[in-house]
Design a protein around this nucleic acid. Structure first.
Lengths: 345, 345
DNA sequence: TTGTAAGCGTTATCAA
DNA sequence: TTGATAACGCTTACAA
């Protein structure tokens, strides 16, 4: 099954490569009979244009890349991504683009970036943001950053992380909780929340603002901060550890729903009642959160819309209409059933 | 931001293109000092090798494509895909491949296939299977079919659809149900289940075998068949229609969990009790199914494993070790809480 | 309406 | 250790 090329067809049809190319791409410029003939022969020989060679000329690959901060198995497990991709996918479908998921190569975003043959990138919540940005710029393809600290002159889509986080913490405090566990998404800055960046920092700030308003702060005693990976397993593991430690927070505030759900599951299995014994609040409002029992109180962010908007902007940029504005989408507290007043203990 | 090419670097460094290429790909073959110098200049000028040009020579793109039968927004909404991709992703991560999702272009698989620059394809539950296969073969890249009728000489990964479906229906019948709604995933063969192919046909056969053993069949009276798209919405819509029609099946057997969950939600909202008033069984055992209330009785299939196996085989094929065996993974009934005996009505 | 020939930016071959 | 030069398979001015 040796590859058939445009040359084979040209020779067999007794025409030039140009004619064959035209037959496929600009049939109008050829006599109908010629097109027919070429196509027939192509069919017979089983010819298909090589997309790489085509891209080489056109400078277009017909695909956009989504740069994700974690390996695929890990990140795809968080319903956050599918939800976001749904929005991106809408745009892709409309304009016939394919979608490539680009995870770090051996931990390096840079290596991943270099090899991806795409017309543009969407970056999702990047760690190591600045260095990646540098590489991205030099790669010369347009990109839109999502959930990262926006950079002047570069298009960005974000949500009101701080406002949302603040609302969540306020909600918890308003119910009377004072022994609170904050669960952050694990980053490179283990334990040093002053060094958090982007989404992480903003959410942390939101939490602290609410805390401060009640004369509290992350003090390692009443209010503690821990980190785990943003997976159900991450939430379960960290909460198991807390359980073992003997400390009994009356509320958990997690930076992602999937973490919160992991905690909930673990707590339930450990015989705790939610919310009677433990209140839980999340962030994201993934569809699953409405389904768990009790339904999870969380902060809604317009994930799909975020994906759509980012893709839309990228598309413009690919077509030369770059628009470096920064967008901030609203968040909103969704009070469901996983938060209640702490039981007198 | 005009593109920097290998020529620019070569000129600036006073070396040949070969040297520059070596500096990046085979540094051992160059004097250390030369490599240093070239790399420094590349850094300074912001040079990155063009992946398309590279692919042109190497014949490798470093990505595998997953051919999906529906537009991205639709298919990604079914947790089935992320679960499958998790398995695929494991393999990709290990060998540093990217993953491209390739949906039909304007309804045509063929058009999608032609443009995707990948080293190999995984096809997922293809409709129009044969014609797509033809195109795939002529495209000349290796591929592994998943959830389609296996073809002699082509590697395939499937599950025991028939056995699983049969078990589900048996379970329903054993509880005493006789008024049953079967919900099939919408295909091109609307209403003609004799023409179903692949997974659809196998599941249908499984259902019918169980039915037949009880002297029943899809007769449009006691046991009816309807089709809907494999989304929550699809399930909701079709069940709403059933509710309006006045017919009251005591059980719903759906070909996918996400459909079953849509039905459950709709039924619950309509004031029906599950399983007291309506028993529901699904297929797939997506994680969500364990979470809904009541937890969904379903047929488990090893989605992740399926993805991993298929990717593994594809990988071999890409590396020239093609192995055209057909694999069939087992399925298993998972009895949870959504099925009970019908209430006397 | 069709053909010639020059790219596109790399890597591979072979020689120096 | 390095450099010319030929692929790779296609598109696209420009010419005929």
């Amino acid at each position: 099954m040796t590859k058939v090329t445009i040359d084979d067809i040209a020779r067999r049809a007794g025409v030039s490569k140009t004619a064959v190319s035209f037959a496929f791409n600009k049939p109008d410029r050829l006599a109908a009979a010629t097109v027919q003939n070429i196509l027939a022969i192509a069919e017979e020989l089983g010819y298909m244009p090589n997309p790489v060679a085509r891209s080489m000329n056109t400078g277009r690959t017909g695909t956009i890349g989504v740069l994700v901060p974690q390996p695929i198995p890990e990140i795809i497990r968080n319903p956050f991504l599918p939800e976001f991709l749904e929005g991106v996918g809408e745009v892709c479908t409309r304009v016939n683009l394919s979608l490539m998921i680009v995870p770090p190569v051996e931990g390096s975003m840079r290596r991943a970036l270099v090899n991806a043959a795409v017309d543009g990138f969407l970056t999702l919540g990047l760690e190591e943001f600045k260095s990646t940005m540098m590489v991205l710029r030099r790669r010369g393809v347009p990109f839109v950053t999502v959930d990262s600290d926006p950079i002047e002159g570069m298009p960005a889509v974000n949500i009101d992380d701080q406002g949302g986080a603040r609302a969540a913490m306020q909600h918890i405090l308003a119910h009377g909780h004072r022994e609170i566990l904050i669960l952050a998404i694990r980053s490179g800055k283990y334990g040093h929340y002053e060094q958090y960046a982007g989404t992480l920092r903003d959410r942390m700030q939101g939490y602290r603002k609410a805390l401060n308003a009640h004369g509290l702060d992350v003090d390692g005693r009443q209010v503690r901060l821990m980190e785990c990976s943003s997976t159900e397993k991450g939430g379960r593991q960290i909460f198991r550890k807390v359980l073992k430690s003997g400390w009994r927070p009356s509320a958990v505030v997690a930076m992602s729903d999937i973490i919160a759900i992991g905690v909930m599951r673990e707590a339930l299995e450990a015989g705790l009642r939610v919310p009677a014994d433990l209140s839980i609040a999340g962030f994201d409002n993934i569809p699953l959160s409405a389904w768990v029992n009790p339904p999870l109180t969380t902060v809604a962010q317009p994930l799909q819309k975020k994906g759509r908007l980012a893709a839309e902007i990228l598309l413009q940029a690919i077509e030369g209409q770059s628009d470096p504005r920064h967008h901030v989408l609203p968040t909103k507290l969704v009070a469901r059933k996983s938060v209640a007043a702490p039981s007198a203990s």
